[in-house]
Deep mutational scan, measured.
Amino acid sequence: MGSVRTNRYSIVSSEEDGMKLATMAVANGFGNGKSKVHTRQQCRSRFVKKDGHCNVQFINVGEKGQRYLADIFTTCVDIRWRWMLVIFCLAFVLSWLFFGCVFWLIALLHGDLDTDYKDDDDKSKVSKACVSEVNSFTAAFLFSIETQTTIGYGFRCVTDECPIAVFMVVFQSIVGCIIDAFIIGAVMAKMAKPKKRNETLVFSHNAVIAMRDGKLCLMWRVGNLRKSHLVEAHVRAQLLKSRITSEGEYIPLDQIDINVGFDSGIDRIFLVSPITIVHEIDEDSPLYDLSKQDIDNADFEIVVILEGMVEATAMTTQCRSSYLANEILWGHRYEPVLFEEKHYYKVDYSRFHKTYEVPNTPLCSARDLAEKKYILSNANSFCYENEVALTSKEEEEDSENGVPESTSTDSPPGIDLHNQASVPLEPRPLRRESEIGSRR
């Protein structure tokens, strides 16, 4: 089982795998120059863009038009607004034209077009017409509009002379109601789609790998820009990579689940303020055997998904993003964004995407760390350097704002901070800030 798991979770494809794949392509008759073999020097295209759209195009789909027309309502909801407006206008105009032609044909076959009612006051002739005051196609078209929109100006009306005319008036009224219901329903469904809710759900630009509770963890940050909550919010993550099976089958995008606390339930989050999602790199993680150097040379993509129900409509929305291997910062942490004021908490989104480097973060893999092949620094050293990194950030910001350097908390000259780390230190809580992250 261990060997199978290692093969499945191998992220960085070796040169031997690339040569094996190329040999397979030639042997199977696919070596026509169009096949692409992804190596370390040639990274694959992003499968999920940063804005959440999937970078996929469908080609050679059989009976595409028929399949889309069979699900016309979903098609109308998914198309762009400009095409929705075109369909909206065409549906009414074509129905008016169709029934206008029908009423014109009825008048033509009944002989109503030969009668001039402007110079004739004989009401008996008017009563013999199928539709009064309809003696041309324009008049028939206007009567069709008046019937379907129930305008009723009063000059044109159907008589009991022709039952077919009466039937067409009733039929057009029913068709008009159906068109109204369909168009209004599609427009309302399109307006109520929770897709735009994703514009106020954000992911951090970069993911980070750092120590948390004595273990290497992959972390990324999510935030909600609205005050309205995302009900039943939960997160998922998958690692996408290519691999070759033991039988020699090439899988271009193998999807591997990344555990973010599904078993323990901590994948469900209360997204009021930005939260750091934590994936513990343990023996079940696809990143277990990867060191910093392996991450730098790897070719994979981590897709992160945030799902929840919109509070206003109770409709489920899904926000997506992805991180390539070069977008994962090893040995970094996110800057705090949640600050405790006197009577409330304040979230500073200008710090949302910012990170700071944490010294002495192990550069080895989580496996080597678990097997004690890498000796961690003293816990006080880690905490102290973590505090120094934050303090230096604040000093830089104070210097930019014009604060005198004498007010900063610099260490005395001639003292090495790293050498001082081995000395037991008193706890130094942050002056006014605390970061709330997901705790395992």
Rank of each mutant, 00 (worst) to 15 (best):
G2V: 06
V4L: 09
R5Y: 06
T6G: 07
T6V: 08
Y9Q: 14
I11S: 15
V12M: 02
S13P: 04
E15T: 07
E15C: 05
E15S: 06
E16G: 05
E16L: 04
E16I: 04
D17W: 03
M24Y: 08
A25Q: 15
A25C: 09
A25H: 14
A25L: 05
V26A: 15
V26T: 10
N28M: 05
F30L: 14
N32K: 08
N32L: 05
G33A: 12
S35V: 11
S35P: 11
K36D: 15
H38V: 13
R40V: 12
Q41A: 11
S45M: 06
S45W: 05
K49D: 11
K49W: 03
K50E: 07
D51W: 02
H53E: 05
V56G: 05
Q57W: 05
F58N: 15
I59L: 14
E63I: 12
E63P: 12
E63Y: 09
G65C: 11
Q66E: 04
R67E: 04
Y68V: 10
A70K: 15
D71P: 13
D71N: 15
I72Q: 13
F73E: 14
F73N: 14
C76G: 14
V77N: 07
V77M: 14
R82V: 15
W83I: 01
W83L: 06
L85I: 13
V86G: 05
V86F: 08
V86E: 03
I87H: 15
A91R: 04
F92D: 03
S95P: 03
L97Y: 01
G100V: 00
C101E: 03
F103N: 02
L105D: 01
I106F: 01
A107W: 00
A107H: 01
L109G: 15
H110W: 01
D112K: 03
D112G: 01
D114F: 04
D114Y: 10
T115G: 08
D116M: 14
D119L: 00
D119S: 01
D120S: 01
D122K: 00
D122S: 02
D122Y: 02
K123D: 01
S124V: 14
S124N: 11
S127W: 14
S127T: 13
K128V: 15
K128Y: 08
K128A: 15
C130H: 02
V131N: 01
S132R: 04
V134M: 11
V134D: 00
F137C: 03
T138M: 03
T138S: 09
A140P: 01
A140M: 03
A140L: 02
F141Q: 05
F141C: 04
L142S: 02
L142A: 03
L142E: 03
F143Q: 02
S144C: 01
I145P: 01
I145E: 00
I145Y: 13
E146Y: 02
T147H: 06
T147W: 03
T147R: 04
Q148W: 02
Q148G: 05
Q148V: 01
T149Y: 03
T149K: 04
T149D: 06
T150C: 08
T150L: 02
I151K: 08
I151C: 03
G152R: 03
G152V: 02
G152S: 05
Y153N: 07
G154F: 03
G154Q: 03
R156E: 03
C157L: 11
C157T: 10
T159F: 01
D160V: 02
E161H: 05
C162A: 01
C162N: 02
I164P: 03
I164L: 13
A165H: 01
V166L: 04
V166K: 04
F167S: 11
M168R: 00
V170I: 05
V170N: 01
F171W: 12
F171I: 07
Q172N: 00
I174V: 04
I174M: 04
G176Y: 02
G176F: 02
I178D: 02
I179G: 07
F182W: 04
G185R: 02
A186F: 06
A189D: 10
A189I: 15
M191I: 04
A192L: 15
A192D: 05
A192C: 04
A192E: 09
A192K: 04
K193N: 06
K195F: 07
K195H: 04
K195P: 14
K195R: 11
K196C: 12
N198G: 14
N198I: 13
N198Y: 10
N198F: 10
T200Y: 11
T200H: 14
L201Q: 07
L201N: 10
H205P: 08
A207M: 06
V208R: 01
V208G: 00
V208N: 00
A210T: 11
A210C: 08
R212D: 06
K215Y: 04
C217E: 04
M219D: 00
W220H: 02
R221Y: 00
R221D: 01
G223A: 10
G223I: 08
L225W: 14
L225T: 14
R226M: 07
K227Q: 06
K227W: 07
K227H: 07
K227P: 03
L230A: 11
V231M: 09
V231L: 13
E232W: 12
E232F: 09
H234F: 11
H234I: 09
V235C: 11
R236K: 10
R236G: 05
A237I: 01
L239R: 00
L240E: 00
R243A: 09
I244E: 15
Y250E: 15
Y250K: 15
Y250I: 15
I251Q: 12
I251A: 15
I251N: 13
I251C: 13
D254E: 12
D257G: 08
D257F: 06
I258L: 13
I258F: 06
N259K: 06
V260A: 09
V260P: 00
V260D: 01
G261L: 08
D263R: 09
S264E: 13
G265K: 10
I266Q: 14
I266A: 09
D267S: 10
D267M: 06
R268V: 06
R268L: 07
R268A: 07
I269Q: 11
I269R: 10
V272Q: 08
S273E: 07
T276K: 03
T276C: 05
I277R: 01
H279N: 01
H279T: 02
E280G: 04
E280C: 10
I281F: 01
D282I: 06
D282T: 12
D284C: 12
D289T: 08
L290C: 11
L290H: 08
S291C: 09
K292P: 14
N297D: 09
N297F: 12
F300T: 01
E301K: 00
E301T: 01
I302H: 00
I302C: 01
V303C: 08
I305H: 07
V310M: 11
A312W: 08
A314N: 09
A314E: 14
M315P: 11
T316Y: 11
T317M: 13
Q318M: 13
C319Y: 10
C319M: 07
R320Y: 09
Y323E: 00
L324N: 12
A325D: 02
A325N: 10
E327T: 00
E327N: 01
E327C: 00
I328E: 00
I328R: 00
L329Y: 05
H332W: 05
R333C: 14
E335P: 01
P336I: 06
V337P: 01
F339H: 15
E340W: 09
E340Q: 05
E341V: 06
K342A: 09
H343C: 10
Y344M: 04
Y345R: 05
K346V: 03
K346G: 09
D348P: 02
Y349L: 13
Y349M: 06
R351D: 04
K354A: 09
T355M: 04
T355F: 01
E357D: 08
P359A: 13
L363S: 11
C364I: 03
S365E: 00
S365W: 01
S365I: 00
A366I: 02
R367Q: 03
D368F: 04
A370F: 05
K372M: 12
K372A: 13
K373P: 10
I375Y: 07
N378H: 12
N380Q: 05
N380D: 10
S381W: 05
S381V: 07
C383H: 13
C383F: 07
Y384R: 06
Y384S: 09
E385G: 03
E387S: 01
V388E: 14
T391R: 06
K393A: 14
E395T: 10
E396G: 13
E400K: 10
N401Y: 06
N401R: 12
G402T: 10
V403L: 11
V403S: 12
V403G: 13
T407Q: 09
S408P: 13
T409L: 06
D410C: 10
G414R: 10
D416H: 09
N419S: 11
N419F: 08
A421P: 09
V423K: 10
V423Q: 13
V423D: 14
P424M: 14
P429A: 14
P429I: 13
P429C: 10
L430R: 13
L430M: 10
R432E: 15
E433K: 12
E433L: 11
E435A: 08
